[in-house]
Design a protein around this nucleic acid. Structure first.
Lengths: 334, 334
DNA sequence: ATGAAAGCGCTAACAG
DNA sequence: CTGTTAGCGCTTTCAT
């Protein structure tokens, strides 16, 4: 490395402690010596070794963020917000990706813990009690988002189920007679935590039951595009309720190729309200999962927990789970 | 924290060194003691303190990545590739964002250096000799991408200029008589390093000169959408050459609202070939900046430099800059 | 107002 | 094969 406090001490003819006092601004020190030390430090381009500091302080003023990847606007947006808030509080953010790999996720978390992150925001692919214990063993605040790992862990999300139910109701009110639930992602299981998608599925099923005459159908694997034409061409007025905007866009693209367009020939809704929709016509009906609000809430919660932990307090279990409102985004496709 | 090697030593009735030997697998140690120590370590859920290890080793097996943000597919894709390669080599990746803030970028880099990252990949908003010296003062390998900071620094990119020239040529060959260079981003300067966009501008200007009869026009600030209708409706056949797909999409959207569509009413090309284009019709003509290749090359270069540095060797200056080929992506809008 | 000494948790050099 | 010692660079008592 470069120069150390020891070097500075020697250069200034003082002790390391005095150097530290000058640098940290804490403790009594003669203004002159302080200025002298600071000047020399600047001249010598002194930079504190954060590893050493973290080691002795037992904390790093850094929070970790572990997500699937960063390719989806969904995570990207979240990360921006978390990072901004962290910076505002004088913290740093450390992003790590797990790429849907359960073991990788574990390793990334272990690593972050071993680097003494002060807290972590996690979008997990794991779930269950065993994993919950693992997370707790890290012995630092972990706030989960997107996928629920287990009850009792800090968790921030929107009411996915209710959102899907509203989509069904709206389709029903528009006179659609047959609803197709499209979620190819569910075929990737059971290795991955599909909490979100499952919630949406549950919401769909419950809502369909409430409307007796409604027919239901499902597209639950990656060959889903092969069946959409057939489904859209049936007599009954059909709407596709997709659990992600991407699926909806792919279906629209496919059906466009077959000469079919919403809302005339079929109805379709997405989920997530990704930015791409701005450029797509007709405007896709979708549901905003309030990324900003979720991210902001999650990071605030994390800092609450960090402060509580630093103060030696226990977190209030009732405050750990926060379900935020979703927002229905109207469009032209239903 | 949790348990330390000291605790393990006590629990096993051996010295810390022996514990270390068991844990690291290095040095002579009796198989029985090793097994015993490893067992206890597992039982006690021992995890090495990476800060302490980094401190003594002087390296962390982690590389840093500093980019604008993570919202653009461009960075996201790069980050994925860099992360994958880092993991493959047993390294970790640490992502930090500067959000186009020059000071922030400096701070993020300082921080990474102070955490003893082994190397950094940087998409900078700074430039110039002074900043080059700053980067060098960090005393660790830094590979720059996207924006060139200064000559002599490791830099990976595509031939932006040549790409733009090809776009001009193609427009010319298609019979367009007037070319509009659209790059609102240039208005954000001069605080930011617009190397890429400037390169594209230069390419445009040079190419236009080579085709004498070609008329040229420029949209260089964020009010650009206000003028596109007027420009598109002129007599001469007009094509907009945009320095980013987003600008092109916005123009198309705007003109669509005016009843104008490419390629009948005007021509348009983008830059970057972002994923969103898949869902947009008509298919935008664009230029792929080979993100994957750039990222892969950059990360490989970085590891070369890291190894060279570890071996105490000097890097070959000739190998520092790598310009990769771009790819012209045909479509329906020109 | 300054300094000496101890310690964070780990690794490395050198003895035994 | 195992242990002792020292040190990474910083912070934190406790003296002076």
């Amino acid at each position: 490395m470069g120069i150390t406090t020891k070097d500075l001490a020697q250069l200034c003819g003082v002790s390391r402690t005095t150097v530290h006092r000058a640098l940290s601004g804490e403790g009594r020190i003669h203004p002159d010596t302080r200025e002298r030390i600071l000047r020399v430090a600047r001249e010598q381009d002194y930079r504190p070794d954060l590893l050493a500091r973290g080691l002795v302080k037992g904390k790093t003023s850094t929070i970790g963020v572990v997500v699937l990847d960063v390719k989806s606007e969904y995570f990207a947006e979240k990360i921006s917000i978390i990072g901004a808030e962290a910076n505002r509080r004088g913290y740093c953010m450390n992003i790590m990706l797990h790429g849907n790999d359960k073991e990788m996720e574990r390793n990334q978390l272990l690593r972050l813990a071993s680097y003494r992150m002060d807290g972590i925001i996690l979008s997990s692919v794991n779930e269950g009690e065993e994993y919950k214990r693992f997370l707790e063993s890290l012995d630092l605040p972990v706030v989960t988002v997107d996928n629920k790992v287990a009850d009792g862990l800090p968790f921030v999300s929107i009411d996915e189920k209710e959102a899907m139910k509203e989509a069904v109701s709206r389709a029903w009110n528009k006179g659609y007679e047959r609803l197709v639930f499209a979620c190819p992602a569910l075929a990737d299981g059971p290795n991955i935590n599909f909490y979100v998608h499952l919630q949406r599925l549950e919401g769909f099923q419950e809502a369909v039951k409430e409307h007796g005459e409604l027919q239901e159908d499902y597209l639950l694997d990656w060959t889903y595009l092969e069946r959409v034409e057939e489904l859209a061409k049936q007599e009954k007025r059909t709407a596709f309720l997709c659990t992600a905007d991407e699926f909806a866009l792919d279906i629209m693209k496919k059906l466009y190729g077959c000469g079919l367009e919403p809302p005339e020939d079929y109805g379709i809704t997405g989920f997530d309200n990704i930015d791409t929709l701005e450029y797509v016509s007709p405007r896709l009906v979708t549901i905003s999962n309030s990324v900003n609000a979720v991210a902001q809430t999650a990071v605030n919660l994390l800092f609450d927990l960090i402060e509580k932990k630093a103060a030696g307090e226990e977190a209030d279990p009732g405050e750990l789970t926060r379900i935020l409102p979703y927002e229905f985004i109207p469009g032209e496709t239903l």
